[in-house]
Design a protein around this nucleic acid. Structure first.
Length: 884
RNA sequence: GGGGGCGUGGCGGAAUGGUAGACGCUGCGGAUUUAAAAUCCGUUGACUGUAAAAGUCGUGGGGGUUCAAGUCCCCCCGCCCCCA
């Protein structure tokens, strides 16, 4: 055995061994009455999953971190005797492939498949324990056939529909986007372009039908980070309130939605969205031109622009009025773009005294303000930062009054406490409205239906045929998949490239046989990724989307790992799909991902000049005191997410070539807790490499000594009969087992798990006698414990110690007798301050501990001349004297 | 404005209410070496102090609970994320 650790010599060897011996194959059950092949029925199962990557062609450090985390979990579970499903695949549809086709003329399929095989090799080089037999790629017909099939399930269930709507248009990618795919600044999640508004006929999925479930079932997700659940809840945006029917002068019903029906008596005007259907009939002849111009201007603005806080309010009076049903007051109806047609009813009553946006609008257009909530007393008014007088003076208000108080000028609500609680104003108002048949309590969601069609080529074609006679006809199941044609021209402009492929578009109607046309839009790639985790359970099924039995036995995913950027998008869509497929009786669980870990970013150091430009490190003379190569000014140093544009990317291939996969894995796990951002540091990588070298030398030294024969006797070891030193070593060994097992089974504290490996390694190196049974046990345990983290070196070392692959050995178990110490360190405190420690027998009882402490030199010194008031004895820990 | 998270040495980070800073990196000193790399040993919160000791302060700031607070409670400051 080599005394020098050389990862290049062992890593590919073991990767080949694992593949040859099918170590990572998902266990297959036995086919009999109750069990289906491929389903984990008897044993405990564990489904470990990383979010699958887009095959860009190159693995980056974020991937390495994500997959290493899941791999450690999968490997530990296997050693613990679980049946493990740990698959990998490709989120392979998407725009980069199409852009490559436009730029370089490479067919998207070729480009994608080449990238996949390249990245697959990179993944294999990391020693990730995937069952490659279950690999999926969403761009292959044997996968997207079933994506199309699922689309038809949605269609059949009435959850997929077409409608004409003002949608988000990405001018760079030349396609529409769902609301979730536009950030808070109105930019595309992919291209970063400012999205535009366009009126288009598009396909939608009725995710709003599941809004309530998607919100409520968040409670089931105890293994999810709180902030992800909060983000989803915010996105769904449930609000409760009431719909109230006003009457226009012409006698038409004008229904508004409000979360504060109790303030109805304070409504002084109304506002309609520019798109509201009643605008035309309400508009007077004199206002018509102004209104039309305003509508035209609003049509070009995105939701984000229209609702931005602090934006100057705009609006136009229609010239019309409506009647407030609770008090018969006639109030003017305005049109303004801060009211959205697709939220609530597209119409609001404006209560400027108690709504900030209404307040700003009223002040700008000099509309009346009427307060109907008054602070309960002066103190409340002052505390709230409002007018200090007992009553709010409408003419002096500088902001809407949003705090609690008492209802006034509100007919039946006068004197009632304002608020949403039991018996408070909001509930009383709803009861009143319902009693008088003026309105009713209702619930509203911010969540909108999911726009799923895209005007691009490289996606799953929507399996629909448009027939002039039969209308929208689903492609019959037997005709799936609707394959993407290959003879396509890519221009990157205008409609979907599919529209120009005549022989593909023109088909006969499956229903009546007449000449008809295929739908030329493809599906949002988020559909592909909303069910891939189900397909892994039965990845090679040619007959069905999956066997329900297999899916029900493997799912839910026990541990899902991915980036926080999918907190809403992918995770919300996947939850929605799961619920719909459950309601189609295809599976029997509510939530797809039991536990979720959102790993932090991988960052590296960047240098920025005063203009905010990133400077390449190789242009900087002295990295310890970096200055601008041109101006000589001091550069700003910070850690940012790795990227080419910031000149701080570290390609995984470089690290693998220099140190090997095991070092890369260990470094990434050790450097930071998984959910926190990780700062790349070459010196720390070096440190990990040194650590693996120490492990190698320690084990190699032992394996070459005569003591290696002791390995067979380890199972007979008994702490009781050992020397003091061996006992201590054995305690270190079993402490490591205990701590590492707990770190992994608990909150995935890989950083502390690795530090425990280091402690054990240190204890072994410090051992004076390296020929003992306790030492042999320590060495073998170290190799077993390090196996999930650094799988190659562990297998190489194990091959010199034991039989078979280390990854097929059982995870070590703690011998509690080894953890018992003969002596403990007793802390002596005086008045709560630690003054010293002493070694005492572990078996000492409270009285004995107090006696030891009292007689100790430190206590004598500190307690001299003082009176002991009280003694606190914490067994096994400390004695504290309270003395004056 | 609302919600969530965070604040600990030169750095990354550890600490069931019980010795703060585990483990690692960096720095410093030393051994080995013709020299270097590699390796090994020691040291590395601040301050006071010494021959050796020993002591004081210290987990963003201020208060509180407790024999004992990084940890629990109240107020404040700063940073990050999400939603408006």
């Amino acid at each position: 055995m080599e005394l020098r650790y050389s990862p290049a010599d062992i890593e590919t060897k073991w990767q080949q061994y694992w593949a040859d011996h099918k170590l990572n194959k998902t266990p297959e059950g036995i086919t009999n009455g109750s069990q289906t092949e491929g389903s984990p029925k008897n044993a405990k199962k564990f489904y470990a999953l990383s979010m699958f990557p887009y095959p860009s062609g190159d693995l980056h450090m974020g991937h390495v971190r994500n997959y290493t985390i899941t791999d450690v979990i999968a490997r530990v579970r296997r050693m613990q005797g679980y049946q493990v499903l740990h698959p990998m695949g490709w989120d392979a549809f998407g725009l980069p492939a199409e852009n490559a086709a436009i730029k370089r003329g490479v067919p998207p399929a070729d480009w994608t498949l080449k990238n996949i095989s390249q990245m697959r090799e990179q993944l294999k080089a990391l020693g990730l324990s995937y069952d490659w037999d279950r690999e999926v790629a969403t761009c292959l017909p044997n996968y997207y056939r079933w994506t199309q099939w699922i689309f038809l399930q949605f269609f059949e269930a009435g959850l997929a529909y077409q409608k004409e709507a003002a949608v988000n248009w990405d001018p760079i990618d030349q396609t529409v986007l769902a609301n979730e795919q536009v950030d808070s600044e109105g930019r595309s999640w992919r291209s970063g372009a400012k999205v535009e508004r366009k009126l288009l006929r598009q396909w939608f999925f009725k995710i709003t039908a599941y809004a309530e479930q998607l919100l409520n079932d968040l409670d089931q997700l105890s293994g999810w980070p709180e902030r992800v659940k909060t983000m989803q809840a915010n996105w769904i945006g449930k609000s409760t309130g009431a719909q109230v029917t006003f009457k226009t002068e012409a006698g038409e019903d004008l229904v508004i939605y409000t979360t504060r029906p109790d303030t109805l008596w304070g409504a002084t005007f109304m506002v309609l969205a520019p798109e509201h259907p009643l605008v035309a009939s309400l508009t007077s002849a004199t206002q018509a031109d102004l209104i039309e111009a305003y509508q035209a201007a609003a049509a070009n603005l995105s939701t984000i622009d229209r609702t931005a806080e602090g934006r100057e309010k705009t609006g136009v009076w229609t010239g019309g009025y409506a009647v407030n049903p609770v008090n018969g007051e006639k109030i003017p109806v305005w049109v303004a773009d801060y009211v959205m047609m697709d939220y609530g009813t597209g119409a609001i009553m404006a209560v400027p005294a108690h709504d900030q946006r209404d307040f700003e609008f009223a002040r700008k257009f000099d509309l009346p303000i009427k307060a109907v909530v008054q602070p309960e007393d002066e103190a409340a008014g002052e505390a709230a930062g409002e007018a200090a007088s007992e009553t709010i003076a409408e003419d002096k208000m500088t902001a809407a009054y949003l705090h609690d108080g008492v209802m006034v000028h509100s007919g039946p609500l006068n004197g009632v406490a304002s608020g949403k609680g039991e018996g408070e104003s909001v509930q009383r108002a709803i009861a009143y409205l319902e009693e008088k048949s003026l309105g009713h309590g209702t619930t509203n969601y911010r969540l909108r239906d999911w726009l799923v069609s895209r005007q691009r080529y490289w996606g799953a074609p929507i399996p629909i045929i448009h027939c002039p006679h039969c209308g929208t006809v689903p492609v019959p199941e037997k005709d799936l998949p609707v394959k993407l044609p290959e003879n396509v021209e890519f221009s990157g402009k205008g409609a979907s490239p599919l529209a120009k492929v005549e022989d593909w578009v023109n088909v006969s109607c499956p229903s009546c046989g007449a000449a008809a046309k295929r739908e030329t839009d493809t599906m949002d790639t988020f559909l592909d990724s909303s069910w891939y985790f189900l397909r892994y359970a039965d990845a090679n099924n040619e007959e069905a989307v999956f066997s329900s039995e297999r899916v029900n036995s493997w799912l839910p995913v026990d541990q899902y790992v991915g980036g926080i950027e999918h907190a809403i998008l992918h995770l919300l869509y996947s939850r929605f799909f799961t619920k719909v497929l459950r309601d189609r009786n295809l599976l029997n669980f509510d939530e797809p991902f039991q536990r979720l870990l959102t790993q932090g970013m991988v960052q590296a150091i960047t240098y920025k000049n005063a203009e905010g430009q990133f400077i390449m490190p190789q242009d900087i003379t002295d990295l310890n005191s970096p200055t601008d190569p041109v101006t000589g000014e001091r550069l700003q140093v910070s850690f940012e997410k790795m990227s080419k544009s910031k000149f701080n990317g570290v390609p995984p291939s470089e690290v693998l070539a220099k140190y090997g996969a095991d070092t890369a894995r260990m470094f990434i796990l050790f450097k930071a807790p998984p959910e926190k951002d990780l700062e790349w540091d070459d010196a720390d990588v070096e440190g990990q490499f040194r650590f693996l070298n120490r492990v190698w030398r320690a084990v190699a030294g032992f394996a070459q000594s005569d003591s290696v024969s002791l390995v067979k006797q380890i199972k007979d070891i008994q702490s009781q009969s050992l020397s003091k030193e061996d006992k201590a070593l054995r305690k270190a060994t079993h402490t490591a087992i205990k701590e590492i097992t707990e770190d992994i089974e608990g909150d995935y504290q890989f950083n502390t798990a690795v530090s425990e490996l280091m402690k054990l390694s240190n204890a072994l190196n410090d051992a004076k006698n390296k020929t003992t049974l306790a030492f042999a046990e320590g060495i073998c345990t170290l190799v077993l414990l390090i196996a999930p983290f650094a799988p190659h070196i562990a297998d190489e070392l194990w091959s010199h110690l034991g039989e078979g692959s280390v990854h097929q050995q059982p995870w070590p178990s703690v011998d509690n007798t080894a953890l018992v110490a003969d002596e403990i360190t007793l802390v002596v405190q005086i008045m709560g301050k630690t003054r010293g420690t002493l070694q005492v027998p572990a078996a000492a009882d409270k009285a004995a501990l107090e006696r030891y402490a009292r007689e100790s030199e430190v206590a004598q010194r500190y307690l001299e001349g003082k009176e002991i008031k009280k003694v606190i004895v914490v067994p096994g820990k400390l004695v504290n004297f309270v003395a004056v």
